[in-house]
Every structure is written in structure tokens, then in C-alpha cells.
Design a protein around this nucleic acid. Structure first.
Lengths: 162, 162
DNA sequence: CCTTGACCTTCCCACGATGGGAGCCATTAT
DNA sequence: ATAATGGCTCCCATCGTGGGAAGGTCAAGG
């Protein structure tokens, strides 16, 4: 199987397959005499695994761990479960953050007439928002796992470990 | 005020202030004879506005719009409200996605013993996940606003508009 | 007056995951 | 034989943020 076919079969773009190889997430594929990468069913299974894990928002780094556990016969299922549950927690944390943002925004929107007049509390409240907490007293919760969820509230994690 | 003070006062790092200037989000600051940027209270207010909007997960592009509305006296509050509500919708969409992921993972975790034995349905189910839908029949909902929420389920938006 | 340290300047590089595209070679179909 | 796919490698862009180097400036203290 060439890379294009493996891509279609796995749902991972050819571009990304090469990329994953280059960063060592997957082993270098075999090559034909003329340099084409060759894939077998097992490779496709791995790629599908990766694709699925990405869909679940696991980072490549975490997928490395999962792949390690997958291929490690001596692995304990507890390890996998723990990884999964940590990830659920991260997803939930992120949801809570989004919830908070949405709540704030909904509140602001509710106080806005929404008619043709220019008065708009949304803009005004954002403009006059309290100054940022000058000196963070508390060490800022959440240092979890360096980039557990790649996006996130600006400047929340890096500072925690700087 | 120098950039460092403006940074402390606004909660936006000096690095980012320069960056925002370079991409045209904010107007070039005045300069002292020796080239230091100078900021006044109004600049700090704008920076705080930006900071706050970023905390609410608005993209820089959207903040540009908001700033435009802020400084446009003829603006209609309806425009702002619409922007805010669209953003709420985007946040909620993203939350739903995370919810789904968390649900899937929780389900997988529940079927996992979590003891020392290696059998682990999580890994197995991920590995044997159904092949990706070969040809997406429907045009894939959500084309909303190019990158409304910067992160998101891999390969969901770009394809929609490619 | 001169050093020191804190601050400023610009410029380049990095992340993470992904796509785009150029320039060239290989395979396959007409 | 030729054209159309498709693969190869490399480089660049995205988005928001930080890191750091090399050098200029300023204020305080000796």
C-alpha cells in the first residue's frame, strides 16, 4: 500500500503520516526500490488508532504514551485507564472554562439593547474591566500536565511553572 | 509610561504589546527620543480591553472588530451583541464537542478493570475503531467564521471550505 | 564621571498540528 | 510515447505566545 491508500484507509492525511514519521510517533515505513513508502494493515491500524485518539483530543505526546502502552504487553490496564481519566478531567476543566466565558458573554449580551442605538454595555464593561490581579497571591491552580489541552485560557499554565 | 509599566497595568506582556502593534491590532505607540515606546492611560485601557477579550477566547481578528466597534461612535449596539452571541454559540459548540469526547472516554474507562491485568478495552476499542467515513455525504455543518474557535476537532472546518 | 543593573530596542526561533505548494521523480493509463 | 496521477523532499504559513541574543538607554550609587 502506498501512502495515499494508507491515508484513505486510516483517515490520516498523507501529509500527517509523513509528519508523524518525522517526529518519531510512528516507525519509519518501509520503502520500495524507488523510495515510496509502503504500508501494511498493521500500519493502518496504528494510524487509525492515532486518528481516533486525536479525535478525542489527545495530544501527539499523549498518543506516544498510549502507543507505548498498546505495544507493551506487560502494561497494566490501570495505566491506560488513568491516562484516559486524566484526559476526561482535562476535557471537563476546559469545558468549565468555556462555560464560564459563555456565561459572562451571555450576561453581557443580555444587558445590551441590541437595537440601533450605540449604547452598549458589552463594550463598556470590557473596557472598564478591573485591572488584572497585580500579584497573583495563589500559585494558580492547574499545572496538570504541560499542555494537557493545547488551547486554554491565555497565560494560565506557563506562568504556573515559570 | 514605558512598555513594562503598561504591561503590568494591563496584564498584557510587553512581548505581546509589541506583537499587537506589529500586526496592527493597536496603533504604533509614541516614542521617546531614544526610541522607547510611551503609553498613556487610554492605551492601557485598550490593552486591558484586549486582555479581557482574549480571556473570553475572542481571536485577535475578532478583537479587531470589537475595537472597531468600540471606537466607532456610529456603531449600533446590535452589531456588538451579535458578535457576542455568535461567540457564545461557538463556545457552546466547542463545549458540546468536548462533552462528546469526554463521554466516549468515560465510557471506555468504565469498561476497563483498571487493575494490574493487561486486558484493556480502551486500547482495543481505539485500535479497532471503525474505518473513517470514506466519503462524507453531508457537507459537514459548521463553516461558521473561519476559525471561530481556534482549536477544534481535527480536520473539521478546513475541509468544509476547501 | 563611570559602573552597574534594570529596562528598552529589534530580530530570529520555538511550540503543536496542520495545510499549501514548488520542483522533481515514478508509476500507470491512454 | 505521452499525459495524468501520485509520491518524494523542503520550505512556508497559520495562531498566540514565550525565549533569548545583541545592543542601546537610563537612573542610582560609588
Amino acid at each position: 500500500m502506498n501512502i495515499g491508500q494508507a491515508a484513505k484507509a486510516s483517515g490520516v492525511s498523507a501529509k500527517m503520516i509523513r509528519h508523524y514519521e518525522s517526529i518519531g510517533l510512528i516507525a519509519p515505513a518501509g520503502r520500495t526500490g524507488s523510495g515510496y513508502r509502503v504500508y501494511g494493515p498493521n500500519d493502518v491500524a496504528i494510524l487509525r488508532f492515532i486518528r481516533r485518539a486525536r479525535d478525542l483530543n489527545f495530544s501527539v505526546e499523549q498518543i506516544k504514551e498510549l502507543l507505548g502502552l498498546w505495544q507493551d504487553r506487560a502494561r497494566a490496564s490501570a495505566d491506560v485507564k488513568q491516562l484516559a481519566l486524566e484526559h476526561v478531567a482535562a476535557l471537563e476543566a476546559r469545558m468549565r472554562e468555556l462555560q464560564e466565558m459563555a456565561g459572562t458573554l451571555r450576561h453581557l449580551a443580555k444587558t445590551c439593547h441590541g437595537d440601533g442605538r450605540p449604547e452598549c454595555p458589552i463594550i463598556e464593561e470590557l473596557a472598564q474591566a478591573a485591572a488584572p490581579p497585580p500579584a497573583a497571591g495563589k500559585p494558580a491552580r492547574r499545572a496538570a500536565r504541560l499542555g494537557e489541552l493545547a488551547d486554554g485560557p491565555i497565560n494560565a499554565r506557563k506562568k504556573a511553572l515559570a
